[in-house]
Design a binder for these strands. Structure first.
Lengths: 318, 318
DNA sequence: CTAAAGTATATAACTAGTTATGTAAATATA
DNA sequence: TATATTTACATAACTAGTTATATACTTTAG
C-alpha cells in the first residue's frame, strides 16, 4: 500500500502537494460551515485588502506572490460577488485600483470568528506535534530564498561527480584525445593557428620535453578533459596554463576545475611563483573558471595567438 | 510588502501552496540538469512501478493517492515517452496492467544518481533547520487522518458559540417566543394537536403552575431556543422533557444540548430519578441529541400525541 | 443461466493556478 | 517634441490536477 511513503525525502514535493490539497479541501468546507459565501482562493487577496485598504492588481500580485493574471481573475470573482469595487480613480489610467465594498467589509467582520477558530485549530495541531510545521515552513521559505533547491542539488552533483573524475599524467595513448578535444573547441570558436598545430601534433616535443606537463581527466575511465602546463621563456613567468579542453558531454562535472587545480599544483611543485594564461573573453565559462582558480586579469604582453584578447596571472602561494 | 506573512497560521494553506509550487518548479529544473527527459508529475507512478514491478491503473492510483483519471493520464504520457508498456495480459479484461519497458528500467537506473543528490540536498536543508519539516509533514498527515481540520474547527466553533449562549428561566416576556418557536417546527413536520395549543397558549397555567419549568436560550441576548420540564402524573416518571425548540438560524450552536443539560439539572434538583420524553424518529437530529444527553429508548407507554413514535428515558444519577 | 450489481477504466468537463502575448498608457530618450 | 521603452493589465492558451459520467467487463444472486 505505501510504497510512496517509503520513497524517502526526494518525494517531499509529492508529499507537500498531497498535504496542501488536503488542507485546501478542508478550507472550502470550513467556509461552508460558517455559511459565508466565500472561496478559499479569494483569501489572500481579500485579506490584504481588508488589512491595507486599496491596492492595484500588481501590488496585490506581489504581496500574495501570485501571478498578475491570477489576481485579475480573483478580483473579478470578488467583484461579481459584490465584495470589492474596482477601477477606482487614479491619475494613472493603466492602474486598476481595488478596495472592499461595504458588503466586503461586513464579510471581513463575519470572517473574524472563523479565522479565530481556524487559527486555534491549527495551533492545537502544532502543539500536538513534536515538530512545528509552521516554523518549519518559514525556515524552508528562508532557506530556499538563500539558495534554491536546484542550486543545492547542483553543488552535490558536482561533488559526487568529482569523485568519478581522476586526473592522470599524460601518456602516449592520450595523444589523439589531447589533439581532438582541443581542435574541437578551437575550431568551433576560432581557427587553428600554426602554434596550435605544432603543439597538438607533437605534445612530447613541444610541451613535455621542454619541461612542461600535461594532465588528462578520466571520467569513469574515459578521457574527457585535458590541460597543459607549458614551460615558457619569459622575464616574469616560467609557466603557462594552456590547451585546457573539456568534452561538451562532460560539462558540469567540475572537470575543468579539477584539471586547473592539478596544473596549479604541478607548477607549485616546479617552484613557480606565478602562473600565466591567455584566453578570449567570448569564452565566458572558461574565464569564470580561471577566476575561480584565482587568476586575475593583467595587461599588454605579446602573444603568438590571434585569438587571445585577455591575459591572466595567478600568484602561487608557496 | 509582506501583509500575507502576517496573516497568521490561518494562512497555512496559502503558505503550503507557495512552498509546494517552489519545490515542484525546482524539481522540473533538476530533471533538466540531469539531462533526463522526465516530468516531475511522472515521479510517483514511475517510482512505484520501478519498485514493485507491474500494477493496474487503480492500484497505482491508490498507492500514490491520486485520482484514477490522473494516473490514466500519467501512464499515457509515460507510454508515449516509451517508459512503460500497458495492457499486459490479465485474465480480467477490464484491467490495464502497467509495467516499465527496458527503456524505463534504464531511466530508473539513470535517475538513481539524481535521487541520491536530491535526497542529500533535502537532508542538508532539514539539518540546517531547527524544525524538521519532513517529520512535521508526517505528523500532520497522521493528525489529519485521525481528525480532519474541518472537524477540529467544528469543535472549536461549538465551544466558542456556547459561550455566547445563556440559559435563563422563563419570564412572561418570552411567552410569544416559546409559542412561535414550537409552532414553527411542529407545523413543518406535523400538525398542531390539542395538547400543543393548550400548553403553548398558557405555559404558566399548563406547565409552570403544576410544578414544571421552562428554560430559554439566549444567543447574544436574542431568545432562539426553548425547552420545558413538565411535571407529570405517572407511576414511573415524575417529569417529562418536552417542547424543545431551537430556531433554524441558531442551528449548530450547541443550543439544544445546553437546554437539555439545563432541564436535566432542574429535574435532578427537583429530586427526579428518571426523566421521560416523547418524540418522532423522523426528527433525526433531535433523537441524536437526546441520545447524547443520555436518553435511552423504551417501549409502549400511552401518549396523547399522534406524532409520537418513540419514547425515551434518562436515569438521573444523584 | 440470466439479470442485477459492482468494478476498472477512459473520457469529458471543470478548477486553480501558470506562462505568453497584445494593447493602452506612462515614462524616458534622442 | 516625437519616438522608443517600460509598465499595468486583460486575455488566451496551457498545466496538473480534480469530479462526474459512460462503457465494457466481472461477479453475485435468484
Amino acid at each position: 500500500m505505501n510504497t510512496i511513503h517509503n520513497a524517502g525525502k526526494k518525494a517531499i514535493g509529492s508529499r507537500l502537494r498531497l498535504l496542501t490539497a488536503k488542507v485546501t479541501e478542508n478550507a472550502a468546507e470550513i467556509y461552508k460551515l460558517y455559511k459565508i459565501d466565500f472561496s478559499p482562493k479569494w483569501f489572500p487577496v481579500f485579506f490584504v485588502l481588508s488589512e491595507e485598504g486599496k491596492k492595484t492588481i500588481t501590488q496585490l500580485a506581489n504581496e500574495i506572490q501570485h501571478s498578475q493574471p491570477s489576481v485579475t481573475k480573483i478580483v473579478k470573482e470578488l467583484a461579481t460577488a459584490g465584495l470589492v469595487k474596482l477601477n477606482l480613480e487614479t491619475t494613472d489610467k493603466r492602474k486598476n485600483m481595488v478596495s472592499l465594498t461595504k458588503k466586503g467589509e461586513k464579510t471581513a467582520v463575519l470572517l473574524e470568528d472563523q479565522y479565530q477558530d481556524v487559527e486555534i485549530a491549527i495551533e492545537n495541531m502544532i502543539e500536538a506535534s513534536t515538530h512545528n510545521i509552521w516554523e518549519a515552513i518559514k525556515e524552508w521559505e528562508f532557506l530556499l530564498e538563500q539558495k534554491s533547491l536546484l542550486d543545492r542539488v547542483k553543488e552535490l552533483k558536482k561533488i559526487r561527480e568529482s569523485k568519478n573524475v581522476q586526473i592522470v599524467p599524460y601518456e602516449a595513448k592520450y595523444k589523439t584525445v589531447f589533439r581532438t578535444l582541443n581542435e574541437e573547441w578551437i575550431t568551433s570558436y576560432f581557427e587553428m593557428e600554426e602554434a596550435d598545430h605544432k603543439a597538438l601534433k607533437n605534445p612530447k616535443e613541444y610541451i613535455l620535453d621542454p619541461g612542461g606537463k600535461i594532465f588528462v581527466a578520466l571520467y569513469k575511465d574515459e578521457p574527457l578533459g585535458v590541460c597543459a602546463l607549458l614551460k615558457i621563456d619569459h622575464s616574469v613567468y616560467d609557466f603557462e596554463l594552456a590547451k585546457m579542453a573539456v568534452s561538451p558531454k562532460a560539462q558540469g562535472k567540475n572537470i575543468g576545475y579539477l584539471l586547473g587545480k592539478a596544473i596549479v599544483e604541478a607548477a607549485k611543485n616546479e617552484g613557480a611563483s606565478k602562473l600565466y594564461l591567455e584566453s578570449n573573453t567570448i569564452l565566458k565559462p572558461a574565464i569564470h573558471l580561471y577566476q575561480k582558480l584565482g587568476f586575475k586579469k593583467i595587461i599588454g604582453l605579446p602573444t603568438p595567438y590571434k585569438r587571445c584578447n585577455i591575459q591572466m596571472e595567478l600568484e602561487i602561494e608557496s
